[in-house]
């Protein structure tokens, strides 16, 4: 009962926020209302996740359904931090609708909490998943900054300014933020993969078992590492960097959706 009420509040909050944030691109007076929607949805989700944690006695990240909720919560939370800075409220117009769709889509997944791993692994496995999630969140945000960059750059290059010219942060700032997010996400992913390998060693007796999941994760890691190298050494900036961040995230999507659906197996989502 309380659970469904919280879910309804989350839905209403995020839905209203999505509509209002897109509307805020056209009229900024909608922005405070949109933020109100985010606060509603996010606090309802916080309570929901806390409640589930208490009921399960552990972080609710052991089924795709719960994991998505946790991911959306993390994304929205980081947005609430970012938007405090002038200019970055408009990130909401891109992020919140995506997050809302992700969350709503996840409602069709099985709600049941999945079986947990062997008890001796509990803490490490939690950390493994939490860190991987945090890195995905950073990568998604970086991709969103990439989209925003491309939109604004297109208007500036075509010299026909309409919406994004007026609304979005300066190009250089968006470029820098995207790269910082990836700089933040990559160490998370590195540690997550290290923990994953340790877990694999304990459970299957080998650090590396050549599962598709492992290979895709490694590729993702490599791709983001190359991104940072290109920026650091080859001086990549702006346009190319933005496209790279967007394409790289497609790998992440495939990693946590495609691989799970196509090659079900150990390693979770």
């Amino acid at each position: 009962m309380i659970g469904s009420l919280l879910l309804i509040c989350t839905f209403v909050g995020y839905f209203a926020a999505s509509a209002l944030y897109v509307g805020a691109l056209y009229d900024q007076r909608r922005e405070p209302w949109a933020r109100g929607g985010v606060y509603l949805g996010w606090s309802a989700q916080t309570v929901y996740l806390l409640r589930t944690t208490v009921i399960l006695g552990a972080l609710p990240i052991f089924s795709l359904y719960h994991w998505m909720a946790w991911f959306v919560w993390l994304m929205t939370g980081s947005f609430l931090v970012i938007q405090h800075r002038r200019h970055y409220a408009q990130v909401g117009s891109f992020l919140i609708p995506i997050v809302f769709l992700l969350w709503t889509g996840s409602q069709w997944l099985v709600h049941k909490a999945a079986t947990r791993g062997p008890p001796f692994l509990v803490g490490w496995l939690d950390l493994h998943i939490a860190l991987a999630t945090a890195s995905y969140a950073a990568f998604l945000l970086a991709a969103i900054f990439g989209i925003m960059y491309m939109e604004k750059e297109r208007e500036l290059k075509r010299k026909k300014v309409r919406l994004f010219y007026y609304q979005l942060p300066p190009l250089e700032d968006m470029d820098l933020i995207a790269s910082r997010l990836i700089m933040l996400g990559l160490p998370f992913l590195t540690v997550a993969m290290y923990l994953g390998a340790q877990t694999a060693k304990v459970v299957w007796g080998s650090y590396w078992t050549w599962t598709p999941k492992e290979m895709w994760s490694f590729m993702t890691w490599l791709v983001y590492l190359v991104y940072l190298m290109l920026r650091g050494m080859a001086g990549w900036r702006g346009h190319r960097s933005a496209i790279y961040a967007m394409l790289a995230f497609i790998l992440v999507i495939f990693n946590f959706v495609g691989v799970n659906l196509l090659f079900p197996g150990p390693g979770g989502f």
């Binding site: 900024q28 604004k152 500036l156 010219y165 007026y166 942060p169 300066p170 190009l171 250089e172 700032d173």
Partner: peptide
């Protein structure tokens, strides 16, 4: 409102455009 925002002269427009790319 944004009634006084956005440049209407060449001098201001140059600054505004530069700020759209560089920010600070």
């Amino acid at each position: 409102t944004g009634i006084s925002h956005n440049a209407l002269s060449v001098g201001h427009a140059v600054v505004e455009l530069a700020e759209k790319v560089f920010g600070d």
